[in-house]
Design a protein around this nucleic acid. Sequence first.
DNA 1: CCACGTCAAGAGCACTGCTCTCGTTTTCTG
DNA 2: CAGAAAACGAGAGCAGTGCTCTTGACGTGG
Lengths: 236, 236
Amino acid sequence: MTASGTRARVRAELTREITEAARRPHAPGGGGALSLRAVARELGMASSAVYRYFPSRADLLTALIVEAYDALGAAAEQADAACGPADLRARWHAVCRSAREWALAHPHEYALVYGSPVPGYAAPQTTIGPASRVGEVLCRLVADGLAAGTVPVPQGGGDAVLAPGAAERVGLSADDPGSSLAARSILAWTSVFGMISFELFGHTHNVVADHERFFRNGADHLADLLGLPAGSGTLR
Amino acid sequence: MTASGTRARVRAELTREITEAARRPHAPGGGGALSLRAVARELGMASSAVYRYFPSRADLLTALIVEAYDALGAAAEQADAACGPADLRARWHAVCRSAREWALAHPHEYALVYGSPVPGYAAPQTTIGPASRVGEVLCRLVADGLAAGTVPVPQGGGDAVLAPGAAERVGLSADDPGSSLAARSILAWTSVFGMISFELFGHTHNVVADHERFFRNGADHLADLLGLPAGSGTLR
DNA sequence: CCACGTCAAGAGCACTGCTCTCGTTTTCTG
DNA sequence: CAGAAAACGAGAGCAGTGCTCTTGACGTGG
């Protein structure tokens, strides 16, 4: 095992180098303009050699997508963990802010993941796990408040709208029969990424001047919608 | 003038046919997979002939984008106009619903417009006008309520966040010194398209079961955020 | 030790956007 | 009305792409 481990290790190394190089050429030509031949040139190898590691361009894209989801999810989890667990609104703002900042720091990877699906690309099962990480962070945060009693259960409004098991997966089913708090959390989740996407894709370019403040105010309104308590307040 | 009008007419006709054919091949390969040669083949002409009408692929894309913006904007304006002007919440729901339905009916054109920017594409000035149509419908609706006094002015929260002139452009500056109602309207606008994009791009696939109801409930929460009065209520 | 599996390289196919040239057709002008 | 000028369609050609196949060279396990 460890004897052939050397081969497996250089293979893993080269695989990592390929995805790393593939992330760089993404800069000039945004999302779907990833060229296998370009990354092969950058690594000084023949284009056909890359196919030893990724059977097709779509598989390389998948690897990049999974990495992006994981990086964003890790950033969100880290931002959440850095807060005092009781201050829900601070946690909410921290997670939202970390997502936006990651997106601003990695616009092409964000576009790859939250933009339009790449032309001939169908998301494989591999991506759905990492994809939900930041959504789960957001929902678990609300679930913590629900469990602690600091977040009230809204009445009605979310009747049987979610997929079965979705609310349970993040601990948002107890004391919330119609899953209306879970539905509100999903709404807030989509709204957060709606703001980020609109900013990054330029739709609010001529409308919003101070995007950071706009985002913070918007996240605050969403926290109100969720009923998150005000907290210590320094982050507002 | 009208003598050369025949020439200009067949040119306009052919231009229209090209964009029309270009919208169709969009079905197999989503956003950026538009092939000039494919539309030329479909029209039975040489690929080079298309360049007489669109100097580059990007220009053809721009034409498609403008058409998509216009179609979506027209649908929204029409849905708004079909309501009694005083029932703000009905108008809000009608416009939101029309946007979602247009997106569901034209997913590839929606992705072209609200997805990630096409690789080597930079949105020219031509697109920014039509792009804001549905946002303006939404904001004007709120402005009507502000003018009629049926929508209250929220206190604080939207301090100097918008671009200068943005609130004035849709009549949301009067009696709203901090433009906080305007900022809320923009937030609601981004949230609506966040919901549509997440649904269309599959991010809520394993989370939301009844997308239509989820969207309606979400739009209702956003209407609450804006302070729109309840209205006659049949649309809820 | 040597056969086997892995690897890199190259040629080649079909496709793309785009440019250029070459006749033809239509329009404007003297 | 005739000729100049502009617009037009078709084709060849260039550089680039994803992907397949074949050909050798190399390291590894029986």
